[in-house]
C-alpha cells in the first residue's frame, strides 16, 4: 500500500466531509442554537446571575460570533478526525465488504459506522441544545457517551470476527448477537442525569437537525473516500522489476 497516498486521501476525504457537515449545521442547526441560547439568557436575567444591560449584549455578541464562526472549522477538525478512523477501518475491511466497487463498499461501511457509532448511542444519549445540561455533570456525561460509543463499536467488530468463524447459514446469529448485546447495554447504562427544562418541541427539532447534520457527514465520507479510492487505488504498490 502507498502509505503517503493512503494518509492523504483519508485526511482530505474527512476534511471535505467535515466541511459539508459544518456547512449543513450552519444552515439548519444554528437557528435552534440561537433560540436555545436566547432562553438561556432569559433564565440568567430572571435568576439575577446576569443583568440585561448593553454591556452584556456587547460581550454576548462577541463570543456568539466566535462560536458561530467555529462551526465550520470545528466541522473540518471533527471530520478529519472521524475520517481518520473511517479510513483505518475501511483499509482493514475493504476486501471483506460486499459490493463490486469501492464507492459501494465505502458507503456500506459508512452506513454501518453511522448506525453503530452514532445512531445507537444517540438513542440512549441524544444531542441536546444549550440550556439543557448541567456544567457539574459534563464529565460524567462525556464518560457515559464515549463509553457507549466504544462499547457499540468494539462489539460490532467482535461480533463481525465471530461471524467469520460461523458457517454461511449461521452468520445471521452474529448480527442477532450484536442486537441482543447492545440492547442489554442500552438498558444497563445509566440515564443522562440532567433534567430537560427547555421546551420539548425545541429540543426535538434540534435533535432532528443534529441527526440530519451528522448523517450528511457519514454519507459524504462514504462517497468521497470511495471515489478517491476507486480513482487512486492506494492499496496497489508500485514495484520495479529488472
Amino acid at each position: 500500500m502507498k502509505t503517503s497516498l493512503f494518509i492523504i486521501i483519508v485526511l482530505i476525504s474527512g476534511a471535505f466531509a467535515g466541511l459539508i457537515h459544518g456547512t449543513v449545521n450552519f444552515a439548519i442547526v444554528e437557528p435552534y442554537l440561537d433560540q436555545a441560547i436566547g432562553i438561556e439568557n432569559q433564565n440568567l436575567f430572571e435568576s439575577g446571575e446576569e443583568e440585561d444591560t448593553p454591556e452584556f449584549w456587547v460581550e454576548y455578541e462577541g463570543y456568539r460570533t466566535w462560536q458561530k464562526s467555529g462551526q465550520i472549522l470545528a466541522g473540518v477538525i471533527l471530520g478529519t478526525s472521524v475520517g481518520a478512523l473511517f479510513g483505518i477501518v475501511f483499509a482493514y475491511s475493504r476486501n471483506a465488504l460486499p459490493g463490486n466497487n469501492d464507492v459501494k463498499k465505502s458507503l456500506l461501511l459508512a452506513g454501518i459506522m453511522w448506525l453503530t457509532l452514532y445512531i445507537i448511542p444517540f438513542l440512549k444519549y441524544p444531542a441536546n441544545p444549550p440550556t439543557v445540561g448541567d456544567g457539574e455533570t459534563v464529565v460524567l456525561r462525556a464518560i457515559l457517551y464515549l463509553s457507549f460509543i466504544a462499547i457499540s463499536g468494539f462489539a460490532a467488530v467482535g461480533f463481525y470476527q465471530l461471524s467469520k468463524k460461523l458457517q454461511n447459514n449461521k452468520k445471521l446469529f452474529a448480527l442477532i448477537g450484536y442486537g441482543v448485546f447492545i440492547t442489554a447495554v442500552f438498558f444497563a447504562m445509566p440515564e443522562n442525569p440532567d433534567e430537560i427544562t427547555a421546551p420539548m418541541n425545541l429540543v426535538n427539532e434540534f435533535r432532528l437537525m443534529s441527526v440530519l447534520g451528522v448523517t450528511s457527514f457519514w454519507a459524504s465520507i462514504g462517497i468521497i473516500l470511495g471515489l478517491f479510492w476507486r480513482k487512486l487505488s492506494p492499496q496497489k504498490e508500485t514495484s520495479n522489476y529488472n
Binding site: N25, L33, G70, Q71, Y125, A127, G133, Y145, S210, V214
Partner: peptide
C-alpha cells in the same frame, strides 16, 4: 471550547 461549542452541541457531544 467556545470555538467548537456549536459543533459540539450539533454533533451530540455533552456540553455545559
Amino acid at each position: 471550547h467556545e470555538l467548537t461549542h456549536d459543533m459540539r452541541h450539533a454533533a451530540g457531544f455533552p456540553c455545559h
